[in-house]
Computed example of a mutant assay.
Amino acid sequence: MTRRRSLVGLGLAALVTACASPFHGWDVQPGTPKQEVLARLGTPTRVVAIPGGERLQYSLQPFGQFAWMVDLDASGRVARVRQVLNAEDFRRIVPDQWTRADVEREFGPPARVDGVSSWQGPVLTYRWRDADRSDMFWWVYLDDRGIVRRSHQGMEFVNAPNERN
């Protein structure tokens, strides 16, 4: 019974997070001034420097499955807006070249940072939803210097039908 209550609590937390989301970020238009974006979407999760401007990150991690990046040009106006937690964007990660800073600049903070006995460094875990609307994880394995060594997807079995207490 305790496990079931925990799952219900987790589900309610995810629902509240989703409902409290500032997003309708998909309809922020290029050219919108930064102050208007902030007034409409609120305080971003993070603000990071990018070439030629800055990025406002609106992440719904750790419970949500979306992260919106609002890229601003040097004049502080929206250049582009996109949701980045998807297979196409994750496949841009280049092992042995990207660092943790690169990953977090492109995807925002991870849902979790884990460790596993078969790997010496941290593992960044992102929650996302694939094109079939399946709940997924994307794992990014870093070495002890923060260099990406590998990354891959996996299924999140949050709603597994055969799960029994």
Results as ranks from 00 to 15, higher is better:
residue 2 T to C: 02
residue 123 V to S: 10
residue 48 V to W: 01
residue 138 W to K: 01
residue 81 V to K: 06
residue 1 M to H: 13
residue 147 I to A: 13
residue 86 N to Q: 11
residue 85 L to R: 10
residue 107 F to G: 06
residue 141 Y to I: 03
residue 126 Y to I: 05
residue 55 R to N: 13
residue 153 Q to K: 05
residue 83 Q to G: 05
residue 77 R to L: 01
residue 148 V to Y: 10
residue 158 V to F: 06
residue 161 P to L: 03
residue 13 A to M: 10
residue 12 L to W: 11
residue 84 V to C: 07
residue 20 A to W: 00
residue 145 R to N: 13
residue 119 W to V: 11
residue 54 E to R: 15
residue 97 Q to P: 00
residue 98 W to E: 14
residue 162 N to V: 00
residue 146 G to I: 02
residue 46 R to W: 02
residue 32 T to V: 08
residue 16 V to L: 14
residue 159 N to C: 02
residue 22 P to M: 01
residue 75 S to F: 03
residue 129 R to F: 00
residue 63 F to D: 12
residue 17 T to H: 01
residue 153 Q to G: 15
residue 132 D to K: 13
residue 79 A to T: 04
residue 134 S to G: 04
residue 44 P to H: 09
residue 132 D to A: 14
residue 7 L to K: 12
residue 82 R to T: 10
residue 102 D to C: 03
residue 128 W to M: 08
residue 119 W to L: 06
residue 72 L to Y: 05
residue 119 W to S: 07
residue 65 Q to P: 11
residue 6 S to R: 14
residue 77 R to C: 00
residue 10 L to H: 12
residue 117 S to A: 06
residue 144 D to M: 09
residue 109 P to S: 14
residue 112 R to Y: 12
residue 129 R to C: 03
residue 165 N to I: 01
residue 80 R to D: 03
residue 11 G to E: 08
residue 76 G to H: 03
residue 105 R to P: 04
residue 32 T to F: 14
residue 45 T to L: 02
residue 136 M to F: 01
residue 68 W to K: 01
residue 120 Q to N: 07
residue 116 V to L: 13
residue 119 W to H: 15
residue 73 D to S: 07
residue 125 T to V: 15
residue 8 V to D: 03
residue 81 V to T: 14
residue 61 Q to D: 03
residue 29 Q to Y: 07
residue 159 N to L: 12
residue 136 M to N: 10
residue 152 H to R: 03
residue 39 A to Y: 00
residue 11 G to P: 13
residue 131 A to C: 13
residue 70 V to Q: 08
residue 151 S to P: 05
residue 59 S to T: 04
residue 97 Q to S: 07
